[in-house]
Design a binder for these strands. Structure first.
Lengths: 125, 125
DNA sequence: CAATCTGTTCTATATTTATTATAACAAAAC
DNA sequence: GTTTTGTTATAATAAATATAGAACAGATTG
């Protein structure tokens, strides 16, 4: 999978990495059971510090997306149930985006269309 | 309109403020043409520094949501057209959220239902 | 078994961001 | 004409972000 980090972005590197791993799983590039590269290998690969990758991995683990096995590696989890905490967080983060969509004049239909078009990006594999 | 700032939140105060103003407009509590409180009055009201409010106002202006009239005040804009930059940003911010929704096992239908339920919050006024 | 690789932990540093605090200015509003 | 307005400047503090280097002990591999 190709990871692209933008150093100039206002989004922290560890967040960019977290998001791209999540998007990779959603796209099907990464599957439950797959191992992620070691923090050192990944860091060298994308040209950032080991600790930055480590931080991203722990964020992914906190969200229940991967399981870190100490002294071994990180494995993408299977998702048997939807965690309540994640569901709540996603809803909270979605809220201001939908509000702004309405404020700039998007209709409900347009908003659903936008969601659909993003879903399509992930689905077509 | 009631503004609630959580000092312990990981979300910066100026972002919380920005979001709540946007949500207020989406909800209909604030309307195009309405004036926002002065940065000083607002700051005193919610118990934060003037510059924090000022930063939020400029963020809102950058997004085309309000117009700051120097030495006068801030007025909520009317939205005749959807700015391309905002549309692009919203899409970019929506993407990781939808990806994570898929990753934790939400179906497309469930995701649309979540969007609908959030839209309903804003609509019922 | 021995060498390598793993995540973990620790210390340290530099930069940026966030927040508050004061103060002063000039234009707008009253 | 006094008050209020956003603006600008300086300063200080704390937290977040990112990097660097090193050491440790368990897991993996040859």
């Amino acid at each position: 999978m190709i990871i692209l980090i933008e150093a100039e972005s206002e989004i922290p590197i560890y967040s960019q990495l977290t998001n791209q791993v999540i998007e990779g799983i959603a796209r099907g590039d990464l599957c439950p059971g797959d191992s992620l590269p070691s923090v050192r290998a990944f860091a060298a690969d994308i040209g950032v510090n080991m600790h930055t990758v480590n931080k991203s991995y722990h964020e992914l683990e906190k969200r229940g997306i991967i399981k870190i096995i100490p002294k071994s590696g990180a494995v993408i989890s299977t998702h048997t149930e939807i965690p309540e905490s994640t569901s709540q967080r996603l809803s909270n983060e979605l809220k201001p985006l939908i509000a702004e969509s309405l404020v700039i004049g998007m209709t409900e239909e347009k908003i659903h269309e936008l969601v659909t078009s993003i879903l399509k990006e992930f689905k077509q594999n």
